[in-house]
Nucleic acid binder design. Structure first.
Lengths: 257, 257
DNA sequence: TGTGTTTCTCAGGGAAATCACAGGCTGCCG
DNA sequence: CGGCAGCCTGTGATTTCCCTGAGAAACACA
């Protein structure tokens, strides 16, 4: 966890046009994120997704570029691939820390990378995800990092609420009508995506693009399958909250209406 | 979603000459849309329909043309066929993103190429429709994209209202006098078309051209059929809002008048 | 390495939506 | 008032889409 003296304090504010909540800095300006990866397709993908969160994005393809950009862009968070062409991720990190000591970093690592090296790094409050990742995962982790780095602000909490259904992004706890519900990782991410977009129809393609990792090449009906799992756990014997809009997609809304 | 600093901010304003509401940029100039498809018949069709929305349209038949046009036309949104003669749709997208990072893209894909990696396309808030599409679908999706990319403006919401009848384009929810009404996909599109043109007679041919996909080869009386479905759900036992103008077409208007 | 969990494929069943057809109804005209 | 064109709607065939059980494969953890 970073110091409370960080000059970046983020506040939660409601109402993007989509009705989603979004993170903003205290002065109302958008959060700034620097994305560093040598594969153009990855930086493109991340930039698009993070811009959609309402954040301001710059990207770099190597270590030196990253340091340069960081200097004048002054990001609130950095997404950093550990495998860069010119220098090791660790070296970049070290130099980055000298420039911006309090900025949280989200590492991207290959699945089979040495876990212990990362473990040491994340002790400082940073975090990491393994490639191939899902966008929901990256966004969620980043939100967490940014939120925690702006510790002072109490208004931003980590719980999503839709009707009598709650989901805590920190503890991964899900309850319906006070009752605890155990979800698997994928189920959790799917539900989070739905709950971050309540009352809004999400197509299977959208869900696949956000919740499944970017290299997923399987059948689109995994979405149907996981919706079915979720219903079993969340709607079982209750007023259903997850609805199908045939030919359009799915949406979640409070049982009441 | 894009930042509030995006230089494209769209505002909702009433009164086109047709009496419809339409999207405009903050300075009052029309929205600009670039259409990219190699089949001339498609670009013609789309250009005509989108111009009718009051938008300014340019079209291109291949990737290089698209990039060139994008550079000086500076569109607010792009309609992009995935199958282009000179380069892959994805390649065009990448280069487009470098030029215009915040412009939303609506992809056109073949229906049978469903599974072929639409991955990541909708991730950044972009959207897609499959060929053959209906014009209402394309227009609705485009409006959605443009609305969402114009972050700050609260006036533009996603709900159509005619009398005590409401239709929400995000949640696909339809109510009459507060009562929820379930519509099928086609019924929904038909009603949306009617409600976007209240108090105005729409011929069966117009309806067929807008609501059904452009390759529809069936009997023209599907329109009658679906009007009948709609009446059953919307006007049932109430003051009717959907009216027949014998020999001319149909129109919707508030029950009061 | 073995065991339990999670993720995903596949395929069958079933429900809903779409549409053609045809007979009945309505309003308009002569 | 009769006839006709245009419109309405019941019936049912077909198609499309969605759900879910069963089991294989991948993974996590001891």
């Amino acid at each position: 966890m970073l110091s409370e003296h960080a000059d970046i304090v983020c506040t939660m504010t409601t109402t993007s046009p989509q009705g989603r909540t979004e993170l903003l800095r205290p002065d109302g300006s958008p959060v700034r994120v620097l994305v560093v990866d040598d594969e153009m397709s990855i930086t493109e993908l991340l930039s698009m997704a993070l811009r959609y969160e309402g954040w301001q994005i710059r990207s770099a393809g190597d270590g030196t570029g990253a340091l340069q950009t960081a200097r004048d862009f002054r990001p609130d968070a950095v997404v950093l691939d550990m495998m860069l062409p010119d220098m090791d991720g660790l070296a970049v990190l070290g130099r980055l820390r000298r420039e911006l000591p309090d900025v949280p970093v989200l590492f991207l690592t290959a699945k089979d990378a040495v876990e212990d090296r990362i473990a040491g790094l994340t002790a400082g409050g940073d975090d990491y995800v393994t490639k191939p990742f899902s966008l929901e995962e990256v966004v969620a982790r980043l939100r967490g990092l940014i939120r925690r780095s702006g510790a002072a602000d109490r208004r931003s909490d980590s719980t999503l609420v839709v009707g009598d259904l709650t989901l805590d992004e920190d503890s991964h706890e899900v309850t319906r009508a006070g009752e605890n519900i155990h979800l698997t990782a994928t189920e959790f991410e799917l539900l989070r995506f739905l709950m971050r977009n309540p009352r809004r129809v999400l197509s299977k393609a959208q869900i696949l693009d956000r919740v499944w990792s970017y290299d997923f090449g399987g059948q689109a009906n995994v979405v149907e399958l996981y919706i079915s799992y979720l219903r079993r756990k969340i709607d079982a014997g209750r007023e259903p909250m997850i609805h199908t809009r045939r030919g359009a997609g799915y949406l979640i809304k409070p049982a009441a209406s």
